[in-house]
Amino acid sequence: MELPELVRKCAEKELFSYCEGKVPPCFRNEVRVSFCIDGEAVTLFEERITLANPADWSSRPVAQFRFQPELNQWSLHYPVSRDCWRLYLNAGPTLNLKNLLRAVDEDPFQSFWQ
């Protein structure tokens, strides 16, 4: 199932702003933050240039936000492996994606930015 159009547009706006502000301009040729929307899930990635070939970028998942349409809420998940996610219990479901982005940055358990 896809995100409702209004939810998608709001999420994209919030995430574009977050990604743009996450890395200072002087480092954007080496590292960047991006996201991908797949159905009702949004995955946040950290991308870095590879040492073998600076023209290539490698990415690693940082966080995943899942929209629950029946509750109209987002939940936050952290990566266990590239394809396995666990619910982040330190931030409950919320209507406001910005709250979960803040939880990613304030994470005392270092579940996201390692």
Score class of each variant (00 low, 15 high):
N90H: 11
L44C: 13
E14Q: 08
W57Q: 09
V33M: 11
R82Y: 14
D105N: 07
L71G: 00
S75H: 02
D107V: 02
R66S: 12
Y18S: 03
V31Q: 11
C26R: 13
H77A: 12
S58V: 08
S111T: 00
G92N: 13
L71D: 09
E47N: 08
R102Y: 06
N29K: 06
E70T: 08
W85M: 03
A91D: 08
L76F: 02
V7N: 04
Q114P: 03
Y78R: 04
S111G: 05
E30L: 09
S111A: 07
K22I: 00
N53A: 10
P25G: 01
L44A: 09
K22M: 09
R48D: 12
N53P: 08
W85H: 10
E12N: 02
R82H: 14
P4M: 01
T43S: 14
H77S: 13
L97A: 03
F67P: 01
A55W: 06
V23E: 04
R60L: 02
R86Q: 12
S59E: 05
F67K: 00
L76H: 02
L51G: 13
K9N: 10
A55D: 12
A52I: 13
L101K: 08
K98V: 05
N90L: 09
N90R: 11
R28T: 00
P69N: 06
P54G: 03
E106P: 09
Y88W: 01
E47I: 03
P24W: 00
W74P: 06
P25F: 00
L51E: 15
A11G: 02
D107Y: 09
R60G: 13
K22N: 08
E30G: 06
G92D: 13
K98L: 05
V31K: 12
E5P: 04
C36E: 15
Q68N: 15
V104P: 10
S34L: 04
E47M: 09
D56H: 15
E30D: 05
V33C: 14
V42N: 02
Q114N: 06
N99H: 11
N99K: 13
P93C: 01
C10V: 04
L97P: 06
E70Q: 14
V31S: 12
V42L: 05
E20T: 07
F67T: 00
S81M: 07
M1D: 14
Y88C: 01
L15M: 02
P93W: 02
V31P: 06
D105I: 01
L95N: 15
R48K: 13
Q64F: 00
L87P: 11
V33Q: 13
K22W: 04
N53S: 10
P54R: 04
R86Y: 06
L89Y: 07
A55R: 14
T94S: 15
Q114R: 09
T94A: 07
N96A: 08
V31C: 11
R102A: 09
A52Q: 14
S17K: 13
A91K: 12
R60M: 03
G92W: 07
A41H: 09
S75V: 01
E106N: 12
